[in-house]
Amino acid sequence: MEQNFIVTAEHGLHARPAAQLVQVAAPFASAIELVTADKAVNLKSMMSVMGVGLASGASFSVRATGDDAQAAVDAIAARLEEQGLARRA
């Protein structure tokens, strides 16, 4: 299960908003990764996610593997859109 996104946040997707995604991702059983042009990081890890910096307009994807993969991706997509951080591509 993989969903592509484009960053819509004016100032990009950086540490503080990215850290919120960890709280959304952590409860799911699936392995969840945030995939950018140059790396894939564990979306359940503050450590990994805080190192992510994506400029406005950059594309990335969220990849989930496991029984609740669809629900996980939906929840993350919902949070990204609610917060005006990114839209589905």
Binding site: A19, V22, Q23, A26, N42, S45, M46, M47
Partner: peptide, 12 residues
Amino acid sequence: DAHLLLLDDPEL
């Protein structure tokens, strides 16, 4: 809350 999240961080 942030400390608790960091304490359980999978990468760490």
